[in-house]
């Protein structure tokens, strides 16, 4: 419990900053919606000139862009990018900081097992992300209801914005996995930005080519917002793949972490 609280406190500031940033993006995007929907037709004309692939890649879908859910889905692509960076950063940082800040000798000479250390850290990550997501969803519901021009499916909105947590857990898992597996993580931000952007690019390619197989390779496309708007449900196969990734990366991290040599500085 003491380790959990310590970690939670250590990441309090970064959690607050990330949460506020996510909310800021939501507010910024959604506050433009009234103006956008008023001139939607003009916008559409401009956008029609874009090649189809580009429109798909940056998340524009014509049929729905003028609706509030469609517009939100477009904004959500960039929120996902931020959220993924936050989660991956958190996982990488919290599991590599003992060796980066050279505090391993402090923590691992205390009467605790490696499993206890790992559990406390994971729970702290989980709590941070849950708090971020709660604040984020509240902000989404608030702003969307303020700027809406027509009725929309609240369930779809909840499902879409709730899928952020799912994405974040995948990237948290990847971050933890990398932190435990790599001998030494010198720069957290370099590794996390690199990984997240690589997956984001794959996601753009997959969207623009409508390549279903490629979708499996990028967590960004496991949840298709337009599919949710249409069918009001997730695609099971992708949910499963995501869950498997989370479970596998956390499990292997546990196994490696328990047996890992903690090297001196």
């Amino acid at each position: 419990m003491n380790m959990y609280l310590h970690e939670l406190k250590a990441y309090r500031k970064s959690t607050i900053i990330w949460t506020l940033s996510l909310i800021a993006i939501v507010v910024l995007f959604m506050s433009l919606f009234p103006a956008f929907s008023r001139d939607a037709e003009d916008f559409m004309k401009v956008l029609e000139g874009f090649p189809e692939e580009v429109k798909k890649a940056i998340g524009l879908s014509f049929d729905t862009l003028a609706t509030i859910l469609g517009y939100f889905s477009y904004a959500f692509l960039y929120i996902k990018l931020c959220g993924a960076i936050q989660a991956m950063n958190l996982g990488l940082s919290i599991f590599s900081k003992e060796s980066r800040d050279k505090t391993a000798e402090f923590l691992f000479t205390k009467p605790v097992t490696r499993t206890q250390v790992m559990t406390a850290k994971l729970l702290a990550c989980f709590t941070s992300l849950i708090l971020t997501n709660l604040a984020f969803i509240l902000a989404v519901l608030g702003t969307v209801s303020m700027v809406k021009t027509e009725e929309y499916s609240g369930k779809a909105l909840l499902m879409i914005s709730g899928s952020l947590l799912f994405l974040q857990l995948i990237f948290l898992g990847l971050g933890v996995f990398l932190a435990v597996l790599l001998p030494k993580v010198k720069s957290v931000i370099a590794v996390s930005l690199g990984t997240v952007f690589a997956f984001f690019m794959i996601g753009m390619i997959s969207s623009s080519t409508d390549d279903e197989a490629l979708r499996f390779f990028t967590p960004f496309n496991y949840v298709n917002d337009y599919y949710i708007i249409e069918h009001l449900r997730f695609e099971t196969s992708f949910l499963l793949v995501g869950a498997v990734i989370i479970i596998l990366s956390v499990l292997t991290s546990f196994l490696v972490y328990r047996k890992k040599d903690i090297h001196s500085v």
């Binding site: 250590a10 800040d101 505090t103 000798e105 402090f106 500085v265």
Partner: peptide, 10 residues
């Protein structure tokens, strides 16, 4: 335990 180099959480 007292290590030769001490580093603590800043």
């Amino acid at each position: 335990y007292l290590p030769s180099e001490v580093f603590y959480y800043d």
